[in-house]
Nucleic acid binder design. Structure first.
Lengths: 234, 234
DNA sequence: CGTCTAATTGAGATGTGTCAAGCGGTGTGG
DNA sequence: CCACACCGCTTGACACATCTCAATTAGACG
């Protein structure tokens, strides 16, 4: 329920540039370009649980994440949410949505979050000035699309246990062995219910793959190798 | 089981240009650009059931469809295929895959098909020469991504009957009321089995939404308005 | 006319969702 | 600083939508 903190502090340009250097979409650009872009951003912080933007909102800004975790999900009236990704350092929130008028997904802070924000119009100016950005965005979008294709294949073809294992592997590959997410969120990421998720986690706990120290809002992977080998389907 | 016909016939340039004019990705470009690009394409025909490219193949060409139906799907060892889209006139087969080294999906001709084909390298040259193409591709990719997001939401939240209705509506909006696809393919497009698909179709036939003249490899929508109203979920 | 593939229908098995109840940790307010 | 209240976690029992397996019918094509 935290409110959005919209305060802008005076970060040095070099620190902003570092955030862009950390992003796949921008890290191929020459330094002068990065500085030019970074100079046009403002720092925006979000409190845990606050929304960065919501499903249906007009898309006005481009965000790049400096720190914290953000979940991108689609809410539904029936309460059946679907989580599509957990974003962190260097990720861009909506390289895609910008070309569409309004957001399809909701972005919500899972922890306190720091972002750099750019006006949509300014972003498009740079997109034309440095065509390489467009190429990188296409690449990124294509990757994301592949991930979602695979997710659909998994949901229709794999059993829940397999899907949750796969989710755990995907998430821990990106975020490390300690996942600061709720069971509910893992379920929504895997396309199943909280209860089923918990039952699978209990099994994995018995097998020693996740730690019994995993508590409220936290899942700890204790055997990454075993998780990886189990996660290979086919 | 048809073999690929690789014969190139001497189409007039103007006819090739017309194909590009019919495509969302290219139709904003000036005529001289379209002629320049069209001149570099060759005509490639495919027999019904033949594969244009397969999952795992190196991506070497860019295709734009002139006529016929092509299904893009991901095959699986368990026989649980998933159909992601049915492409037709003006559609590009793989604006996305080109930025990735190899294809994630298989493209197979459902009917006899005519395409124009461009070398991947040549395509990239034009991508840099006419940045507007990149912008259009980003838009297209973003749309596709949204479609797949929605599909995941549907598969996890909606009942099969609803999903099939939604599939029928989507397909007939694009292809018209006569769908030249098999029950099996509709099932794979809806994320369910052939048998379940047939059972739902039987119900819809009773309701008069699809015609009882629907035969082998063909589904005829007889009440588009009713289908549309049913297809709205929530 | 025979063969092959698609469509159809039935009956049974089962993975997951749903509903309900209880526990435990954590933070907040008195 | 303690106690209460809330929220996430956990487990159990049950229901049922959908898949699976199997057998039959029907249409297309050579």
């Amino acid at each position: 329920m935290g409110k959005t903190l919209n305060q802008e502090s005076k970060w040095e340009l070099s620190r902003k540039v570092a955030v862009f250097k950390n992003s796949e979409i921008f890290n191929h650009l020459p330094s002068y370009a990065l500085e030019e872009i970074a100079a046009r951003t403002i720092l925006v912080r979000f409190k845990k649980d606050s929304k960065i933007f919501m499903d249906g909102d007009k898309s006005e800004f481009f965000y790049i994440v400096d720190s914290g975790l953000i979940k991108l999900f689609k809410g539904s009236s029936t309460g059946k949410n679907v989580v599509f990704s957990i974003s962190t350092n260097g990720d861009t929130l909506n390289g895609s949505a910008l070309s569409i008028d309004s957001h399809f997904l909701t972005a919500q802070a899972i922890t306190d979050v720091t972002t750099l924000r750019l006006e949509k119009e300014v972003f498009f100016i740079f997109l034309h000035k440095y065509p390489d950005i467009a190429v990188q965005i296409i690449k990124k979008l294509a990757q994301r699309l592949t991930i979602e294709y695979q997710k659909i294949v998994d949901i229709t073809g794999e059993e829940v246990e397999q899907r949750i294992i796969h989710s755990l592997y995907t998430l821990s590959s990106k975020l490390g062995p300690i996942l600061n997410i709720k069971r509910e969120e893992l379920g929504e990421f895997s396309g199943t219910t909280t209860e089923t998720t918990i039952r699978v986690l209990s099994k994995l706990k018995k097998k020693g793959i996740i730690s019994s120290a995993s508590t409220r809002g936290k899942i700890i992977i204790s055997n990454m190798d075993e998780l990886q080998s189990l996660s290979y389907h086919m």
